[in-house]
Design a protein around this nucleic acid. Structure first.
Lengths: 351, 351
DNA sequence: CTGTTAGCGCATTCAG
DNA sequence: CTGAATGCGCTAACAG
């Protein structure tokens, strides 16, 4: 920077002000400075800038669980967040260790990041408490108990369940299962899982549907086992909603039980649009605009950091039910228990 | 830091050396310093450290194409890289703008990152040239023309194609199509695509197989169109290998043409294990350990940065052919052209 | 093994 | 509107 100043024949500070624009500089000087910058191929040093200004121009995103790579939808958040940060000339720092509030605040305390994006939020989330009490800026992909003063973006999970239930009711189903997230997540108080359960259990009866609440991880193995149990113990159940990738295991179990989709059993799933596209056969389900959500969460945080935020922004992303050809909910077909199916059920039950 | 030096009754530098371990410190002093750090809840400032030491302790990963979020396999790299960086107490910076060599070197020039991981490498990659000539440390997920002195991790794409071909030959197929990456990628010189084509076209004849090289993006729409064209113009073709997610469109086209998998048509696909698991029905294919690859690429780069590297490490990840139940290659069934199928073919050809 | 000191590259205050 | 001076918090010589 000193070299530039010398070459342009101005003071060091003038170069700084040309770069930051925090003070008006005469046209002549500015041009001379910019020319010198060009000629010497000068690049301001990030760390020095961060040290002097006290801001790292970086936001951090914490990946959820250790096995998070099994949950593709969340990866799409990252894509969205990356786009937003790059567009705003911010940097995006990725980190693991999501559950430890200490590790999270430390990043900001160390000056490595100016703010944080959290995902997989809990109803009572210690990380949120910690960030709030430390006064560190953050935004959420998800919701918590107390949302006062918090900027978040979340999918309208309740609405998605309602829409799905309504669709299934319209088709004549009278007993529907919800494949909710893993039991550990419910126990931990994962907000999305709680909302799904509540809406499911209160809304279903109003639609004349008997609700069966099932919890299962998104791993095909788990969902397969849970689905097998359900199919043998609840022959009345003719449809299911899954909160995520549990449908893979479910579809496997349905095949094993000789139940055809959608003729004999309807499946609706909540999933990111990008992945829904990839599936064969196409799946009827609720599209979760994960990329958008990631983008929004990052933008909200950056707005807060740059002081562009007036009030907390709270985005509830509406989910859209997309009925696709192959596995869409079908006109209700009472599950006929053929000999073959009964044998199958007995086999499953005996294991 | 001055405060804890004072509180511990030692010099400022001693605190620094306790923290960095770059000089041996007596047990007594160390304990006093650590105690003071604990009591005052002190955290070293990242930017200051970076400025003084000249190293940001950060590595950057560039996301590929703008629509990269459509290619889930690459997202798994990120998960792996994140784990490795977090484990080594490094930070992972995510950024877009992968094709611009200028933007990439700039990050290092600005001191925001100490090194770079590139993916989607080209046969002649300007980014690699730039990084090499600038002397910036980097590692690749993928390969380039000239690999001297370069650390990379890549899947053995050639081996994967060979294995797949051998399997199909064993089943009796005599005409196989390769759904390679999009034509633009081949034109650009995307290494993986070039290797796939070369191995496919040289190896197939040796196995008594007529090779048909098809290029298609991984988008279901594109692959569907390409597959439809293939099915109507090449009735002898009874199997296909896809380099990625083209199988979704392909399976759709097969269904539309009334060809059952695997009885009438065999499909083998190269895909990350995590996603293969998610599919219903399960797909026979080559598992690409993307998480491992991302982890390795990050580790190699960090080793290089910390001087732990003696010679460039070059990892060719072996691909494993996993034959899964539902869509595995089937005993060869000559494609019988029933009336229905011919009608279908005519319909497709006429569009 | 420990203490002293001079910067790292920039932002910013203050005097002109 | 401009320029000189100070310090952000830490590392790494150098000197004991």
């Amino acid at each position: 920077m000193a070299q530039i100043a010398e070459r342009a024949g101005v003071a060091l500070s003038t170069v700084s002000y040309v770069l930051s624009g925090k003070r008006s500089v005469s046209q002549q000087m500015r041009e001379r400075v910019l020319a010198a910058i060009e000629e010497l191929d000068y690049r301001p040093h990030g760390a020095a800038r961060a040290l002097a200004s006290g801001a790292s121009h970086t936001i951090a995103l914490f990946l959820p669980s250790p096995q998070w790579h099994l949950v593709p939808i969340q990866q799409t958040f990252i894509a969205g967040a990356t786009q937003a940060t790059s567009a705003s000339d911010y940097a995006l720092l990725l980190s693991t260790a999501a559950t430890d509030p200490e590790a999270i605040t430390q990043l900001v305390a160390q000056g490595r990041a100016d703010g944080v994006i959290l995902m997989e939020t809990l109803h009572d989330d210690p990380r949120v408490e910690r960030l709030r009490s430390a006064g560190y800026p953050f935004s959420l992909i998800g919701r918590t108990n107390d949302l006062t003063g918090i900027s978040f973006v979340d999918m309208d999970f309740g609405g998605a369940i309602e829409t799905s239930l309504a669709q299934l009711a319209r088709l004549g189903h009278t007993c529907v299962a919800l494949f909710n997230f893993a039991p550990e997540l419910l126990t931990a108080g994962y907000t999305a899982a709680l909302i799904a359960r509540d809406v499911f259990e209160t809304r279903a009866p109003e639609l004349g549907i008997r609700p069966i609440h099932v919890t299962s991880s998104q791993a095909p193995r788990d969902a397969f086992a849970a689905a097998s149990r359900l199919l043998s113990s609840e022959p009345e159940c003719t449809a299911a909603i899954t909160t995520g990738w549990q449908f893979t295991g479910l579809l496997g179990a349905l095949r094993a039980a000789d139940l055809r989709v959608p003729d004999e059993f309807s499946v609706v799933s909540v999933i990111a649009a990008e992945f829904a596209e990839m599936l064969t056969p196409a799946l009827t389900g609720v599209d979760w605009p994960a990329f958008e959500a990631g983008r929004l969460a990052a933008e909200m945080l950056i707005d807060k950091l740059t002081g562009k935020e007036t009030a907390p922004r709270q985005h509830l992303v509406a989910a859209e039910l997309v009925v696709r050809e192959s596995t869409g909910p079908a006109p209700r077909a009472k599950r006929s228990t053929t000999k073959r199916q009964r044998r199958r059920a007995a086999f499953l039950g005996a294991r």
